[in-house]
Design a protein around this nucleic acid. Structure first.
Lengths: 342, 342
DNA sequence: CGCTCGAAATAAAACGATTTACATCGGGGC
DNA sequence: GCCCCGATGTAAATCGTTTTATTTCGAGCG
């Protein structure tokens, strides 16, 4: 089996056809199976193709068919383990289905987000959008003109856009109830940026959960911080400076919660004895730090899979956009387990 | 400014040309600047283009020119923060230069690695390869036939391949000298998989460093483990079970080192008092855990930038492959700071 | 005035596949 | 014997751009 044929330059379909002594059309049909072809011809074509080491030129195929077998992945930050995990899952699925993945890292920049959408429009069949700026993105679909988009987490305000997200409000409620149940009395909420729907929903759910347990709203203090480790550190510092009485903290993100835990430790607070901490996401580091972090687990793998399947469906068969909501589950760990149980 | 012209369907160069009352060739030249065009024509073409909302069809352009303005990124595991960081940097550079990024996550699978190379060959201008299976990949370049490849970290055994990597041996040596200097007496080496050059070089450098400080080779014990958190946990468990006298550990990766630190803690060993730990990479978590991890910092951003520039150079101007070696620096933290200094 | 030369514009040929429309051929059905 | 039909094959159009070769036209020069 020769890997590279003697003649240089890429082997084209024409070469295969000539070598098999059939027309280009027949060669194409034999290879793709688009039309019936005589068994002897198909045999000859197949052997010629493998003998010459033919690889179909995807660009030419795309130009003719209008399909790219490629999808775009627009994400705020690959460095964040929660998103990185989803990227990994999606990449695996894409590879299985023969799709290539075009990655765009927006760095939470609204401009890059919508710019990338219009750029991707020309080279991918569809986009998985992890938006962080739903409002700014609003005009992009118009520009993208019919580009299939499936949203993850954010962006459902856009007219007729489907996708997947977690039951953020429900998660916030669970967090509140849990923190009350394990003895929290003054509550701190480390909310994400106001523009993010996930943050807004988790925060609202948290407040609602406290209210449901009969907690005086005056006992809830809120601070806004970025979805990052450093955001958590800095946020909890502000929180405790202003409201030192807070003894139970809910952060909208594990990254924030972990940062908050470390900062609390540096400030001389013992978690969970002086401060109960609950996060959201269940990234792998949540169970590694000490004390291990209580958090709300999102089914990130399931969401990634569903989003991918939804996009493929949209690309191949079209159809109406639909929204799938995934439940979240409370994972109790040491960060909300008071000494009584030690 | 109308975003979408009345007639549906994508606006093509032909439409622009007709609207500007020039030929298609002139329109193309006016837009790309490939040939001189009269000032009045260029004016009309430009205005028509923007008026109609013309977006050049990249696929057609690629077919004609043979360029894709896209590069492939083949990486073992996006979930690993060290690589994720480099992905982030590279994505930023690619975006600046107008390149798209095709991401492939091999999951350390040799088959996927070489398969992805041949698949990418048709749709990208070049590949940044973070190989984990240099030997298995060896045939891929032949298949890929002239696909420009820049290697990162691994893969320099391949004939005539350029790229960037850290001074792994030097880093290993620094680690050894440091561990001796802070009082280590029996040494454990958490090596990576034997097939990885990085692991082999760091390990060899470490052994050489010990020898250079006059340490009896019998005092060095070696264990092989995957480049992951769990690999570190499991590796150090084996290590300490067999050689409980080990009081200084060098892990080839921060991930391993952090896993080892946690496992050591669970086994009742206090870091650094009972066990000195030194890692390699300086991922952001290294400075977050307690005790903060002493490690060898790789200039991952610099390497990413250099690799990208090298690839772009190779793609646009060709040239001979060259290898750039980046120095590593020792970052001393608590995990190798004995109580004396507390 | 004829002839060349250069600038500007254009018609047409790529690029490599898919797909449409048409040719060819043997075999039934009547 | 005639006609139609299904099964194969093939020539050619097509996708949207870049690029090459050709045309046009007026200016400059002998």
């Amino acid at each position: 089996m020769k890997i590279v044929p003697p003649g240089r330059g890429p082997v084209t379909l024409r070469d295969v056809a000539e070598h098999a002594r059939v027309s280009i059309a027949t060669a194409s049909n034999a290879l793709t199976g688009a039309r019936r072809v005589g068994p002897d011809s198909v045999e000859r074509v197949l052997r010629s193709a493998s003998e010459l080491g033919y690889r179909p030129n995807g660009v030419a195929r795309s130009l003719r068919t209008g399909l790219h077998r490629s999808i775009g992945l627009v994400i705020p930050d690959v460095t964040n383990p929660f998103w990185a995990g989803m990227v990994s899952v999606i990449e695996g699925l894409a590879d299985e289905s023969g799709f290539q993945l075009s990655l765009v890292n927006t760095g939470f920049d609204a401009g890059r987000e919508s710019a990338s959408l219009t750029r991707l429009a020309g080279s991918v069949d569809g986009v998985l959008l992890f938006s962080t700026n739903p409002r700014a993105t609003m005009l992009a679909p118009a520009l993208a003109g019919g580009l299939p988009i499936v949203a993850v987490d954010e962006g459902f305000e856009l007219e007729g856009i489907g996708g997947v997200h977690s039951d953020n409000a429900g998660g916030g409620r669970l967090a509140a109830e849990h923190l009350v149940d394990v003895g929290g009395t003054f509550f701190g909420l480390l909310a994400g940026p106001a523009s993010l729907t996930t943050a807004a929903q988790r925060s609202a759910g948290f407040a609602a959960g406290l209210a449901g347990r009969g907690v005086d709203p005056a006992r809830l203090h809120r601070v806004t911080a970025p979805y990052s480790f450093e955001g958590g550190r800095e946020g909890v510092r502000r929180m405790l400076a202003r409201h030192p009485e807070v003894d139970a903290l809910f952060a909208c993100t594990d990254n924030q919660a972990i940062g908050a835990t470390f900062e609390a430790h540096d400030l001389g607070r013992v978690v969970p004895d002086d401060l109960l901490v609950c996060g959201f996401d269940d990234i792998s580091w949540a169970s590694r730090i000490t004390p291990a972090l209580t958090t709300l687990r999102q089914d990130s793998a399931g969401m990634a899979r569903r989003a991918f399947e939804q996009l493929v469906e949209l690309v191949t068969h079209g159809g109406a956009p639909e929204v799938t909501v995934f439940p979240v589950t409370l994972v109790e760990r040491a960060s909300t387990r008071r000494v009584t149980s030690v």
